[in-house]
């Protein structure tokens, strides 16, 4: 099943994440064998590193100034290094959230990106852990048929 119907992309340009097909084990038959599903597909030029690429749903409006809205999809590449200004998915107090990473001097903060909100920030070292860097996000401009949530 194709994840993103951005356009009718050339199917030859579509690759599953990750690239490998069903794993065939030389030693033990895989218990996962009966449950394998087609991987979500993204074109290689959008997701250059499939094994490190994951999709997340976004819920909430605290990143509006970054152009990220409620019900968007974020494609996260865990092989990217987070730097000042990166949009990241991070675990903060046991919750996954999407934040802007701000590094000033040797202080890293995970910040909201919404002018309506206070510049609330989290001390990264104290309670947050970066899960991965958001490579891009996707917004539907038509009803998400079949993708209701």
């Amino acid at each position: 099943m194709g994840l993103y119907r951005i356009a009718d992309l050339d199917p030859a340009g579509l690759i599953p994440i990750p690239i490998m097909g069903p794993a065939l084990c030389a030693g033990f038959p895989s218990p996962a064998d009966d449950f394998l599903e087609g991987a979500l597909e993204l074109p290689r030029w959008l997701a250059p590193n499939p094994p490190a690429t994951f999709a997340w749903n976004i819920s909430g409006d605290s990143m509006r100034a970054a152009g990220i809205f409620d019900r968007d999809l974020a494609v996260v590449d865990r092989s990217l290094k987070a730097g000042n200004g990166s949009v990241v998915v991070a675990a903060i107090d046991g919750e996954m959230s999407i934040k802007r990473l701000r590094i000033e001097g040797n202080v890293a903060r995970l910040a909201f990106d919404n002018p309506d909100l206070p510049a609330f920030a989290v001390q990264e070292a104290a309670e947050g852990e970066i899960w991965g860097v958001v490579r891009f996000t996707i917004r539907w401009h038509v009803a998400r048929a079949g993708l209701v949530r």
């Binding site: 994951f54 999709a55 749903n57």
Partner: peptide, 14 residues
């Protein structure tokens, strides 16, 4: 099924 089903993707709060 966080990685293979569009309807079951994990959610990050913004």
């Amino acid at each position: 099924r966080y990685t293979t089903q569009v309807a079951e993707l994990p959610t990050a709060h913004a």
